[in-house]
Structure formats: structure tokens, C-alpha cells
Design a protein around this nucleic acid. Structure first.
Lengths: 333, 333
DNA sequence: GCCAATCCGGGAAACGGTTTCTCGCCGAGA
DNA sequence: TCTCGGCGAGAAACCGTTTCCCGGATTGGC
């Protein structure tokens, strides 16, 4: 296991018979260099298998050509759809994406700042991250974009999906099936998305719904566990915060001998890959994950260039009816 | 958005009235420094909110205190279980974990090497990464551990789960239910895990099984799509490469009006969170994800310290019967 | 009481690049 | 022919840390 010394820019310069400055210029694609020389340099680069040291580049230039993504839960497939799109955008523009799962509130800012010495900007998908921390980030001038949370008091570009309208549409669907007593399986209490969805559900009183909120979370397990309490309110439909919770709820209902949707209808939100393949296929809301991730990257990239990205409107999500909703039990619908 | 200059170690040194060398020593917890001085330094650090520049540290020390994880598919929840455990291990030991999704064969080595200027070691979860690339990594002396692939010609520490035994057990279970004509929905052709599982299935001829292999992949969609071809062999059971493929297959069967397990039994592998909550709950193999991730970290950490990690035995996985398997249709079992 | 051994902290040289500054050269205009 | 301008390439400064080396002070032994 011989400890081969790393090939440095100086080695390339020597091999090509030029100065290190010239090699640097060639590497960065500067046009102010003699083509013949550039060719010599490129050849030397190849032969020596030279790879610039990222740390050194970052130190010298102050740019790391990478961005950090902080999200609350790696195992939620919803986020994959988003960061996948972000990743292709970043790669296209020569950036690397570092994903950090972060869950505990409290140390969030530390984590972000910590990662910041290796990163040029941040994409925050964490619903729970404290507003003060975000404000701090904004005050420090860290290029940051907020995804799926709208914070009025924070001067940061944000991009989010419209939660309210499609959720209202979903409620209308339920109402038209004769549902009245419905339970909303809540997501994270402080989260913007949770507030929006609950707001829509409450709004749906006007359609005849009588919604009750039951604490839960954005995971299968949470949905599973919240179901028993939800059933205490004798609902004909469960409106879960997201698809995972809906899947968990359906599993619990089945365990209890209740059929979906014959006995209880269940809805999700997000449209993760599984939603379509589950049994019953989930009635849910198709969130434009790819568009969201792409848009988030575009805005982050603008921030990195020092531009102030234009604030886009809410992205629209569409309601889709599948098999997990049906006529309310006992209604004449 | 005032461009506050970053506070450097020199600022701290000035504020505390000591040299930068001393500040560096205090930061690294060296004991050879006067406690009173150390206290002054610490206070200055606090007041100025000093955060060491990671890039500079990496450059100067040659250590980045971070490791790269390269995996083929972020959206496969199986990997979450693994890297979650790795992450807590890494965090405990003061390391950061960078996840890189990488799919296309060919450029793999480049990607790894590229990330290597910011990382001290690598954890490879990609089944498809070419053996030559791995050999190259080993030759360069890059601390690397291979997860879930056993490569005889590569001098690299590896940790993997026993695929063969539990898969054989699973086959035995099917055989005892009277199944004979079974189709194996294959994973990635070159993958070690795929070879092992298929080997076990073939071995099960001795139990009376008559297995056929059908090309598929480790995703829901692939399982869904391979099902039609699989049915061409008129099987009584489908042995999917993993849980996701199994879920996809079940969805397709349902679409075709076939019930699981009454008409066709289906099995998975991995035991992702969903397996238990699916309908029917998946008969599968519980892979020790947390133990695998933890063990992988331990080995990587040893490699980073320059030690040669002891090669552990295969981790054992356990067969678990749930509701997706039943007596073979038309058998008298 | 003197000299050597020890210890602690500061200065300065890396680390591997980027970027600015400067200088030489060449062509064009007067 | 002389000068000025522009351009291309090299020298050197710099990015923020770590670490080696060395000097000064303190301590201990004889």
C-alpha cells in the first residue's frame, strides 16, 4: 500500500513546462491562454491523472462549488423526488450536493454553519428548523432557499407548493361522497405545510365537513399509531398529513378489520411512488416534486451568483382520485 | 446584506492576546497549554463566534473528518437503514458523512476520486461499481469499505449480509407450502447479492422447486413491469429480488385480478419499513440494516486510523413469514 | 549556585490552489 | 522609427489552518 504523493498543480506545471498560474488558468477554462500551451497542459493533466484538491480550491477561491441540503428525514421518499431534481440541476451547473439529515431542533444553526465552511449555499427542507435560525442565516448573507415553508418574517427566497387549494379540492371530493365526520391526522405542529393543510380542512366546514384534528406525524408508524385515537371520533374518512401516514393508517384499519374505503376512506398527500402501488391505491395530491427541486436549484443558483432570485408563485399540486376513497358509510350518496 | 468578513483564527488570537498556534492547540484540545490562556482563548472564540474553516483545516492537516458514501439509489429505503446507523457512528467519532447517489457505471471511479479531495474514506454500497475501479481504489490506498458485496480479487475490507442461507430458508418455506413452479425476479445482473440469492433459489431444486429467472430490478416499477413476463411461466410463487420489486409485483397481480397469496405467493428481501404495512404484509427476509451500517462504520474508522480492520463474518438475516405467502394453488398442501 | 533537561508558546513554513500584479513582447498608429 | 496599447505568461501574495522548530523561562539535580 505505497503512499503515493498526490499529484499537485506544480507537478503538472513542471511536466508541461509552464507556470502554475497557467495551469490554473487552463483548468478554469480561461481563454487568455495560448491554445498550444493549453493543449500541452491538458496532456500533462491527463498523463499525471491530476485532480485539483477541492479543499485548496475552496480555500483559495472562497468557492466550494457545492451546496448543502438539510432535510429532516432521509427515509421519507417525498424528499427524494425533490433532491433528485435539485441534484441534476446542481450537477449541470458544476455543483456538488451534500445532503445532511438533521432532526433535533436546537442545534440546527450550528449544524448549518458548521457545514458552511465547505459549502456555498443552503437549501432548507426542514419544516421544524426554528425561524430565528433562518433569520440568522439571512442576516449573515448566506445564500439560502427555503423549500416548502413560507415564513413571512424571514428575508429569504422560498419556493413552495400550494397546499391549500388542492387540499380543499380533496375535501370537496370527500364531501361529495357524503363524508361529514372526518379526522385530520396532523403532521408536525409547527410546520407551515401542516398549518396550510389543516386550514383547508377547516375551511371545508362550509362544504359540510366536521373535521377533528388528531396528533400524528409524517411517518408510516405515526399514521399507524394515531389511527386508534382517530377512530374514537367515529369518522367516515381519515385525511392524513401525507402518504406515509395514510399508508400506516390503512394498515392499522385493516388490522382492525375495517376496509378501505368501504368502512373508512383514507387520503394522503405528496404522491410518493408507493401511493399508486399500494392497496388500495391512494387517493392523494400529486405534489410537483421534480419541478420543486428544479426551481429550488434555480433560485439557489441565482443566490450564489449574488442575484436576488425572483420570488415565484406557489407551485400547484393536483388532486388525484384513486381507490382509497369511496362513499361515506351510512350516507345515501 | 452586509458582507461580514469571516472571523479567522488570527482574530481570535489577537483578541486573546496569544499566537495563532496557541489558538489552534486549544481548539484541538492539546493539553500542553496554560489553562488560564486556554480559558482566554475559549472566551474569545465564543465572543467572536469563531468557526474554523473546514477547507483550510483539511488542507493543512490532510484530514477532512468526513467520509463519502456512494450508493446507487437514494430512493431505496433499504439504504436508509444502513446509512442512518453509519451516520450515528460517524457523528459519534466526529466525522461527517457525505452521501453521493451515483448510478451510471463508467464514471464511478472519477466520481469517487473527485469527492476524495474532501473526504478521508469511502463506503461503497453500489453493487454495480466495476471491480476494476475498486481494485484501483485499493491500490491507491484509499480507506474504503465495501458493503454488501464480496469481491474475491479485491483487497478491501468488506461487510455483508448472508444472502444465501435465509433465501434457502425462504425457498424451503415455499416448498413446504407445495410450490414448485416459481419465478425469481432478478436484481441487477452483476450484483453479488443477486448472484447469491439466485444461487440459493437454484439450490432449492433439491427441495422440489423449479425456478425460472426473469430479468427485473430493485425497484417497484421494475417489479411491476416484470410480472407479466413472470406470469408467462405460470408460477405459483414469485420470489422478488427485494421488497420493492415484490410490492410492485403484488400491485400488478392485483391489477390483473390475481390475489396474493391465494393465486400467487410473493416474497421480498430486506424488510423495509413498508413491508410490514403493505397489504398483504410481505413475507420477506429481515436484513440487519442497523448492524450492517454500524459495522461498516467501525471498519471504515479502523481503516482511517491506518489499521487493517478484521474481516467480520457474514451478518445473518432472518426469514420472516407474513401474509404474502400461502399454499400453492392447486397443491394438496 | 550553576548547568542541563523540560516545558510552553510564538514564529514561520507548509498545504495546494487562485488571483493580482507586473513585465516583456508584439503589432499598430503617428 | 518610435511610442503606446494590449495581451499573454510568470512571480508572488494570499486563503486559514496545522505543525515543526526554536528560544526563553522554569525547574531540578548535583
Amino acid at each position: 500500500m505505497k503512499e503515493r504523493r498526490r499529484v499537485t498543480i506544480r507537478d503538472v506545471a513542471d511536466a508541461a513546462g509552464v507556470s502554475v498560474a497557467t495551469v490554473s488558468r487552463v483548468m478554469s477554462g480561461s481563454l487568455t491562454v495560448n491554445p498550444e500551451m493549453a493543449e500541452r497542459v491538458r496532456r500533462a493533466t491527463q498523463e499525471l491523472e491530476y485532480r485539483p484538491n477541492g479543499a485548496a480550491q475552496g480555500l483559495a477561491s472562497g468557492m466550494h462549488r457545492s451546496v448543502g441540503v438539510v432535510l429532516p428525514d432521509l427515509s421519507n421518499p417525498y424528499f427524494h423526488g425533490i433532491i433528485k431534481a435539485t441534484n441534476v440541476g446542481a450537477a449541470r451547473d458544476g455543483y456538488r450536493m451534500l445532503v445532511t439529515e438533521w432532526q433535533e431542533p436546537g442545534e440546527e444553526l450550528g449544524v448549518c454553519l458548521d457545514v458552511l465552511s465547505r459549502v456555498d449555499g443552503l437549501m432548507v427542507l426542514s419544516a421544524r428548523m426554528e425561524t430565528d435560525s433562518l433569520r440568522d442565516l439571512a442576516a449573515r448573507g448566506v445564500p439560502t432557499v427555503l423549500v416548502n415553508r413560507v415564513e413571512l418574517g424571514v428575508d429569504l427566497p422560498m419556493v413552495a407548493v400550494d397546499n391549500f387549494s388542492p387540499m380543499l379540492e380533496l375535501c370537496q371530493h370527500l364531501a361529495s361522497l357524503g363524508h361529514r365526520r372526518v379526522v385530520y391526522l396532523a403532521g408536525s405542529p409547527g410546520a407551515w405545510q401542516n398549518r396550510e393543510r389543516w386550514k383547508a380542512v377547516q375551511q371545508a366546514r362550509i362544504l359540510g365537513l366536521e373535521p377533528v384534528m388528531v396528533a400524528s406525524d409524517a411517518t408510516i408508524e405515526a399514521g399507524y399509531e394515531a389511527t386508534d385515537e382517530a377512530l374514537g371520533h367515529d369518522p367516515t374518512a381519515l385525511i392524513a398529513f401525507n402518504d406515509l401516514a395514510a399508508l400506516g393508517a390503512i394498515a392499522r384499519l385493516r388490522e382492525l378489520g375495517l376496509r378501505t374505503p368501504e368502512d373508512v376512506s383514507v387520503t394522503g398527500f405528496d404522491d410518493v411512488a408507493l401511493a399508486r402501488y399500494a392497496d388500495p391505491a391512494l387517493t392523494t395530491i400529486v405534489s410537483p416534486k421534480a419541478a420543486l427541486g428544479e426551481q429550488a436549484w434555480l433560485m439557489l443558483e441565482a443566490s450564489l451568483r449574488g442575484e436576488r432570485p425572483e420570488q415565484p408563485p406557489l407551485l400547484s399540486a393536483t388532486f388525484v382520485q384513486r381507490a382509497s376513497t369511496g362513499p361515506a358509510k351510512g350516507s345515501r350518496a
